[in-house]
Simulated assay, not measured.
Amino acid sequence: MESITYSNFRKDLTTYIKKVNDEASGPIIVTSDNAEDAIVVMSKRDYDSMQETMRVLSNSYLMKKVRKGDEQFESLNFKTHELIEID
């Protein structure tokens, strides 16, 4: 993860916004003199993905289904089928 100073981030704000959105470079840490004031800048797409992952991980019902699917796959206890296309 790239790390830059606040002053450089502010000076080239447009460049860094494009970078996190267009280049799939991941989040950028923006630092300041006080380490506790550091922030992370990420694309909305990455943020939404992270939030959805947290929702799934915190849902015990969904995680039970995921673990069951993993067990079935590992034990080769599954069936494959063609996808149905609806016009």
Score class of each variant (00 low, 15 high):
Ile29Val: 07
Val41Gly: 03
Arg55Asn: 00
Phe73Glu: 09
Asp22Ser: 14
Ile86Asp: 05
Thr53Glu: 12
Asn59Lys: 03
Glu71Phe: 15
Ile84Gly: 06
Phe9Gln: 03
Asn21Val: 03
Ile39Cys: 05
Asp46Arg: 11
Lys19Trp: 00
Tyr47Leu: 14
Ile86Phe: 05
Phe73Asp: 02
Asn77Phe: 04
Tyr16His: 15
Ile28Tyr: 01
Gln51Gly: 00
Thr53Trp: 07
Lys65Ile: 14
Ser75Asp: 10
Ser49Trp: 00
Val40Leu: 08
Lys44Ser: 11
Asp87Val: 14
Asp70Val: 15
Tyr6Thr: 01
Asp70Met: 14
Met63Asp: 05
Ser25Trp: 06
Ser58Met: 06
Met63Glu: 13
Asn59Leu: 00
Ile4Leu: 04
Ile86Gly: 04
Lys65Glu: 14
Leu83Ile: 12
Ile4Lys: 04
Ser43Gly: 02
Asn8Glu: 13
Lys79Tyr: 14
Gly26Lys: 04
Ile84Gln: 12
Val30Pro: 02
Ile17Phe: 13
Val20Lys: 00
Glu74Met: 12
Lys79His: 11
Ile84Asp: 13
Tyr61Thr: 14
His81Tyr: 13
Thr5Trp: 15
Lys11His: 08
Gln72Phe: 07
Asp48Val: 02
Met63Phe: 11
Glu52Lys: 09
Ser49His: 03
Glu52His: 00
Gly26Ser: 05
Glu2Trp: 05
Thr80Tyr: 11
Ala35His: 08
Asn21Thr: 05
Val66Ile: 15
Tyr47Pro: 06
Thr31Gly: 02
Lys19Gln: 05
Ala24Ile: 12
Asp46Met: 07
Ile4Asn: 07
Arg67Pro: 02
Glu52Met: 10
Thr14Arg: 13
Ile17Ser: 09
Gln51Glu: 06
Val41Phe: 00
Asp33Phe: 08
Met42Thr: 06
Glu82Ala: 15
Glu71Ala: 15
Asn77Ser: 14
Asn8Ile: 15
Ser32Asn: 14
Gly69Asn: 10
Thr53His: 03
Asp48Cys: 05
His81Arg: 04
Met50Thr: 01
Ile4Trp: 07
Lys11Gln: 10
Ile29Lys: 04
Ile17Tyr: 11
Glu52Arg: 05
Gly69Asp: 08
Leu57Gly: 09
Gly69Thr: 06
Tyr47Asn: 10
Asp48Ser: 12
Ala38Asn: 11
Val41Pro: 01
Asp12Gly: 02
Ile84Asn: 15
Asp87Cys: 11
Phe73Ser: 03
Leu13Met: 03
Ser3Arg: 10
Ser7Thr: 15
Gly26Ala: 08
Ala38Glu: 07
Met54Trp: 10
Ala24Glu: 15
Lys65Thr: 12
Val66Leu: 13
Tyr61Val: 12
Glu2Asn: 14
Asn77Ile: 04
Asp37Cys: 04
Thr14Cys: 08
Thr14Asn: 12
Ser60Arg: 09
Lys44Arg: 08
Asn59Val: 03
Arg55Gly: 01
Lys68Thr: 11
Glu2Gln: 11
Glu85Pro: 01
Val20Trp: 03
Ile29His: 06
Gly69Glu: 10
Gln72Asn: 07
Ser75Ile: 03
